[in-house]
Amino acid sequence: MKPLQLLLQSSIGKKVIMGATGAALVLFVIGHLVGNLQIFLPKEKINAYAHLLHSSAGVLWAVRLGLVAIVGLHVWAAISLTAQNKAARPVNYVEGTRPYAASWASRYMFHTGLVIAAFVVYHLLHYTAQLPVANLLPSTHPAKDFNQLLVTTGAQSGYRDVHAMLIAGFQQPIVSLFYLIAIGLLCLHLSHGMTAMFQSLGVQEGVWRTRLEKGAQVLAIALFAGYASIPIAVYLRIVQ
């Protein structure tokens, strides 16, 4: 069989795809956080950053399509592997398969993945597509939806006020809660996902097993802390 075919069809090949796309998505998640954390800087910074990202439609769409492709591959591999896994044990043990040495995260990758996928869809509608119905602004909020939040001064004048959008978005408690839960699950997903990625790509061996496992956990916790800080800061009115 051809190498590419093997990569797409064999169990290890699919795990490699899973791991490689996962790695790309982890990098995206890190980059995204770095961008978002600018919320703690003067509001011009994050708006300038948003402006920069939108400055070239070509690059923007290339990146977006790239991400979609990566997510697509990741999801395809997940569904395909999970289906095979289910088929490999048609009759389960009377009390299910006991989780010997298996972490919670490792056993529920598919489930956490599903919640994350749902969140990503909402998140995109919320902040990227800015669908008014998804904005869910509190009734007390002066603006009706994100369309009314525009920068009024400076270089980004006339553009969407991302800073205000973030704050407005997280003023709705139900949105923040969903956000926190999803980020929590995402980080659990990543804590195991990164370990599995190192395994699938063949680097996690010997002393590196513990180091990489610990590293993955530390990174996952750091990511959670970073992402969670935003709605919490909004709630505590640290950023306004």
């Binding site: 896994n85 490999a88 298996a102 490792s106 699938s200």
Partner: peptide, 10 residues
């Protein structure tokens, strides 16, 4: 027809 490794360690 064996399943795949999801690195649970069991």
């Amino acid at each position: 027809g064996f399943g795949n490794c999801t690195v649970t360690g069991s």
